[in-house]
């Protein structure tokens, strides 16, 4: 389903069985947000940044998930799932990548059990939430951490990394994406995400030949393929706020 068809179907469905919560979200959509967004504008305008930001189309690219053996296309999620994207590599010698993955992983845990784990759920008063939900929304979100170090991050390395970072690979919503080559990874990050990736020597770090000074960017796109939030300081992003943003976007 393309974006226009989806918007039409949304409009058609809005009158049928729409809950109070949904009506509230659509109100936000019409009032102050960019076209096709659920959330209002971010506190800080990032539209001049080189990376995609609020209201932009989510970059559409295809890359292999070496663990499932699938080719994953971002476009395939349109109409189906919101997307939480970041870029990382498993040999990250500082804490940046684990901090990014922690944020995605926490959103994954809350998606699987929203009432149990997210007391700050923004729309429903506690007494109603306890009675009616929200239901798990694991099937309405996709986590797409993309490695820019495909030479070292093969299926085995990524699977091991998932284990130690507490990622649930069985949930069916987590895809480590591994571009076919380092060149392809560079191209993808540069052309689609405005991020320059460059190998640098890492003689100072034991057992590491090269490293990447890199950005800690996380991007949240809605089911229409529109960017809702860019978190350029991903490793420092407030986790509960990010999880709330994801939940509002997914359940809108």
């Amino acid at each position: 389903m393309d974006r226009r068809t989806y918007l039409r179907s949304l409009a058609a469905g809005a009158g049928v069985g729409a809950t109070v919560g949904t009506a509230g979200c659509l109100g936000v959509l019409g009032d102050s947000g960019a076209e096709g967004t659920v959330l209002g504008p971010p506190e800080l305008d990032l539209s001049e940044a080189s990376h995609p930001s609020y209201g932009d189309e989510m970059p559409e690219f295809t890359a292999p998930d070496p663990i499932t053996g699938e080719e994953v296309s971002v476009a395939d999620f349109e109409g189906e799932r919101a997307v939480l994207w970041t870029s990382f590599y498993t040999n990250c010698p500082d804490g940046v990548c684990p901090a990014l993955i922690l944020r995605l992983r926490r959103a994954q845990a809350v998606a699987a059990d929203p009432t149990g784990r997210n007391p700050e759920y923004p729309f429903v008063p506690p007494q109603i939430r306890d009675t009616i939900g929200p239901e798990a929304y694991s099937d309405e979100v996709a986590f797409l951490p993309t490695t820019f170090d495909p030479e070292r991050d093969d299926a085995e390395a990524l699977r091991e990394y998932a284990g130690r970072q507490g990622v649930d690979l069985d949930a069916g919503n987590w895809h480590f994406l591994r571009p076919e080559s380092y060149e392809r990874a560079r191209e993808l990050h540069d052309e689609q995400f405005g991020l320059a990736i460059e190998k640098q020597p890492a003689e100072d770090i034991e057992n590491l030949e090269y490293r990447f000074p890199h950005y800690g960017l996380i991007i949240l796109a809605n089911k229409r393929g529109v960017v809702e939030r860019a978190y350029p300081r991903g490793p420092q992003t407030d986790i509960e706020r990010l999880v709330d943003d994801v939940q509002r976007v997914v359940t809108a």
Binding site: E43, L46, A49, Y215
Partner: peptide, 8 residues
Amino acid sequence: ASGNAPAV
């Protein structure tokens, strides 16, 4: 991490 983008 380094980045040119403004802080959030």
